[in-house]
Amino acid sequence: MKRGGLLLLVLPSVVYLLVMFVYPFAYGVFLSLHPAKGAAGASLANYLAFFGDPWQLRTIAVTASLAVPNTIVTVVLALTVAYAMRRGIWAERTITALLVLPIALGTVLVAEGINGFYGPKGWLNQGLQAAGLGDPPRLTHNYTGVMIALFVQHFPFCFLMLLGYISGIDPALEASARVLGARPWVVFRRVMWPLIAPGAAIAFALVFVMNFGVFPSAVLVGQPAGATRTIAIAAYQQAFEHCDMSMASAIAVVMGLCQLLGLAIVVGLRGRLAATGVATVGAGKR
C-alpha cells in the first residue's frame, strides 16, 4: 500500500477525537467567555462571578484540602509498599489481583460499601465498640469519608503503577551498591530514589489530578452541600441544576487550570529531584 494510503487509517480516530474532544474543549472555553445574560462579545463576567462569590471560591479550597493531603499520603504509602515488594513477594499475583478490585468496581460501588462498612452501624464501628473503645468518631458523610473513599480508590492504582515502575529497575544496580557496602537506607537514598523519582512524580501528578476532579465520592460519602462541596460538584450544579452552561464551562476551565497548576508544580519539583540521579534504568522485568 502506498505511504499516503496507509496514513488514511489513522484519520477516523483522529477526526473523532478532534470533533468529540478538542472541539468541545474549545467550545467550552468560548462559552465560558460569553455569559448567558449580558452584552454580546467576550467578557470575563463568569470568572469574576466565580472568584467574587465566596461560596463558589470556597470549592477550590475544599477540593485542595482533600486532594493535596490525600495525594501525599497515597503516594508515600504506595511507594513504601511497592519498594518493599520490588523483588516479588508471596502470592503476589493474588494480592495484586485483589488490589485491582476497587479500580474495576468503580467509585460508586466503593462509596456504597464504605457507607455500610465504615458507617455508624457498620462492622468497623461495631468492632471498635466491642473492643471497648467507646463511641468512635463519625467516618462517613463528612470529610473523613471522602478521604477514605479516595484512598481506597487511588492507593491500588498508584501502587500497581509504581510496582511496575520499580520492578523495571535493573536489580544489578542495587546489588552492586550492597556489595560495595552501602546500608539499605543509603541504597535507597543514593541509588534507588534517583531512579524512582521520575515515576513517583508521574504517579503523584496523576493521583493529584484525579483527586482534584473528585465527584461521585464527594457526593455519596461526603457532605455535598457543605464540607465536601468540591469544584466538580459546583460545575455540575451550574450545568444541570441551574442550566447555566456558560458558568459551568467557566468552572470546568478553572478546575482544569488548577489541575494544570498541580502538574506544573510536580514537573518543576521533578527537575530538582532528578538532578541528584546517578544511575540508569535497566531493562524492564514487567
Binding site: F25, G28, G213, S249, M255
Partner: peptide, 8 residues
C-alpha cells in the same frame, strides 16, 4: 479527568 472535559 472526565469531569473536566465531560462538562464541555
Amino acid at each position: 479527568p472526565q469531569m473536566t472535559y465531560g462538562i464541555p
